[in-house]
Write a protein that binds this DNA or RNA. Structure first.
Lengths: 223, 223
DNA sequence: AAAAGTATTTTTGTATCCACGTATTATCAA
DNA sequence: TTGATAATACGTGGATACAAAAATACTTTT
């Protein structure tokens, strides 16, 4: 459904799980802005539960880097500085580089065509101006990661995508460069097709690092 | 003090923080074995607090991959399969590879000597049979990571070291190969000295990947 | 002995209460 | 008017008691 990365099995809803998903979704969609305070009672009331599971969810969200939890000062939405954004893209580059490298032996012609279909859907979403583009884009990267068959790797990359999703959304809204993106992603598929693992790794790394500066333009250098 | 990685500022002790550190430390030292159940009330009694902060700490520990939290079935200590161990070393290899690459421009002769002193202390600890060796080893890797000046990268690598620490300990206890390790780490310093970023990255990757199979021998193929 | 139903224990979540730290506002002096 | 200080309101962190749901253990019956 909403998750581009199929990392979490997402069955059986404990209250804490529900709170975690609820707030994470709101954060991904940019409903809360960096610096906003999250009051446990308010959120608990929104979903109809008590404060405790919400506070437990806060711990996980803090662990994910989505919020900051300061003693006696509550829970505030985390914002990324330009430096932090670059850092995340550096980490993504090596992690997703590893993912393609590991994905290659497991990838056949059928998969290539699947990826190309995903790319088309991504471009269509981009042309229609739908912010679905961000979800499709995540789906593309998520698909390749999934091919690596490395659960922990997939999980880590997924977590990073969640953190940058709000910034991807404002980036997409303010500027539409979906077709330059299209070329880059097509290059990734081509590299995968080439059968050269190290080359594919390099292409993925370059692709990810090249998008960082564009995204950084839309993040204010303050805070 | 105990943390080889200087990631967490570790001031101001909220109850949850205390519980988190307490259990994490116990897990790192291998006081609990994989599969052991952690009962919130027992741990709460140990440190003299109520169950609530302990449960919150569990969420973070689960997020770190140290415990598994299954709905209605409580908290059990996570164990690593051989596959998972290999996966963590794959991730470490690219992450710490990135770290050395980024560390290089910031590293001067003084640092090289610091690292060599660390290496000596590591070897001395290894020869005396002290399991301090594991801590020193973490310190060595942690120092290089710190030189990268990337907080999130340092944090992620640190988290992985915490997960594998219990296995490093049993590995060290059962077999003493501290001097083959010495050579490898000296090679890392030499690569750093060379000034060739990509070469240093590769050396670090190879070093980490080479230790995985040795460690894996000491992990029983069952969970 | 196997199956079904019952009881007990454990986990999970709720509700309520209090102490303490933080932030805001109000008051007062320069 | 401005700046410093005191009073106050608020939210967080934590404790405790309680209720409900699920899992496990234990009967009892056939």
């Amino acid at each position: 459904m909403s998750a581009a990365f199929p990392a979490e099995p997402q069955m059986s809803a404990t209250a804490e799980e529900e709170a975690y998903r609820h707030v994470q979704r709101a954060l991904r969609l940019g409903r809360y802005k960096p610096g906003d305070r999250l009051i446990p009672e308010e959120i608990a009331a929104e979903i109809g539960m008590s404060r405790m599971p919400v506070r437990e969810a806060f711990r996980r969200l803090a662990s994910d880097g989505l919020v900051v939890l300061r003693p006696n000062r509550g829970c505030v939405v985390a914002g990324l500085t330009v430096d932090e954004l670059y850092e995340i893209f550096e980490i993504r580059s090596v992690l997703e580089g590893l993912a393609v490298r590991l994905a290659m032996p497991r990838t056949d012609e059928e998969e290539f065509e699947d990826l190309e279909r995903l790319l088309e859907r991504m471009e269509r979403a981009g042309q229609s101006g739908s912010s679905d583009w961000v979800v499709r884009h995540q789906e593309f990267h998520g698909r390749i990661c999934a091919l690596s068959r490395r659960p922990k790797l997939i999980h880590q990359i997924s977590a990073l995508h969640v953190v940058i999703e709000p910034y991807m959304r404002i980036w997409f809204d303010d500027c539409d460069k979906p077709h330059s993106a299209r070329e880059e992603h097509a290059a990734v598929i081509a590299a995968l097709r080439s059968g050269d693992e190290l080359h594919a790794e390099k292409v993925m790394q370059d692709h990810i690092l090249s998008t960082a500066p564009m995204l950084a333009e839309f993040v204010s250098p303050s805070r």
